Simulated scan of single mutants.
Amino acid sequence: MALSLFQQLQLIWDYHLLNQEIKKSDAIFVLCSYDLRVAEHAAQLYLDGYAPLLIFSGAQGRTTEGLFHLSEAETFANVAKDMGVPSSAILVETKATNTGENIFFTQDLLKEKNIKVESLLLVQKPYMERRLLATFLKNWNDIEFCITSPNISFINYPTDDVTFDHVASIILGELHRLKIYPTLGYQEAQDIPDDVWEAFENLTQLGFDEYLLPE
């Protein structure tokens, strides 16, 4: 029986999720975006004692230009402060515009501050967990790390500001990057099951192609 549109999207959403066990770490490293629920999740992890340091990284990207008055990192940091995280426990990196830069600029910031970390708790949006794994394995694989995201289901992820069609298009864009970026040296290759890629091809033909890489 053929899968429905929603079932195919759910298949891809589930593939992006890693469902890793989170561990106490030297720092919580947050890759910022438009989704303030990620900031809230990271701040709660700090408040729950998972790490003594909270790092926010992000300038402004395609989805946040004009949305925030400050950089993504500064906006996320303000969310954390409002939740009770002290400023002294927060580092902010405001130049990164992609995942690779999140890593490289944060490495530089830690060196500048003479802060050594041997383990990181990485925080991202749910549909970016796998690509974060692939990018870290390529670019920062000499430390221990685990990955987490807000516990939000696919059906509940859209909001008044983030439509269903946007979420559908962007999770396909993330899968396309998992396919293409290893060939460019940006990340480690991930095994993409045949049924997941078949769903990708079906859905892009239906027009969910806004965030695909250019041919």
Rank of each mutant, 00 (worst) to 15 (best):
L133F: 09
T204Y: 00
I170R: 05
P150S: 01
L110E: 04
T159L: 11
L17V: 10
L5W: 04
R177Q: 03
E210R: 14
E129M: 10
F136E: 00
D160C: 04
N139V: 10
K116G: 12
I171H: 00
L212N: 08
F208E: 01
G66D: 05
Y50E: 06
D195A: 08
Q20T: 09
K111V: 03
E215I: 09
F164E: 05
E72N: 12
L53A: 08
G49D: 07
C32G: 07
W197I: 09
R131G: 03
Y34R: 14
I147Y: 10
W197S: 00
V117G: 05
N102C: 10
E72S: 12
F6D: 05
G61D: 06
T75C: 08
F136L: 10
W140T: 06
V92F: 01
I143R: 12
L110Y: 14
L45C: 06
A168H: 00
P193M: 02
E118S: 15
H41M: 01
G100F: 12
L9M: 13
S4V: 03
L184N: 04
E174D: 15
D165E: 14
A51G: 11
E93S: 02
Q187G: 08
F200I: 06
L67P: 14
E93K: 02
E174H: 05
Y181N: 06
L110M: 07
A43L: 07
L3K: 13
A77K: 04
H41F: 06
L109C: 05
L121E: 04
T159S: 15
G49F: 01
L54K: 05
Y211I: 01
I55C: 04
Y186D: 11
S57P: 07
R177W: 05
T97M: 10
I171W: 00
L122F: 15
K125S: 10
P193D: 07
W140Y: 14
F29M: 02
A39Q: 01
T64Y: 11
T204M: 01
L9G: 03
K81M: 13
G207W: 08
P214D: 15
L109I: 14
Q124T: 13
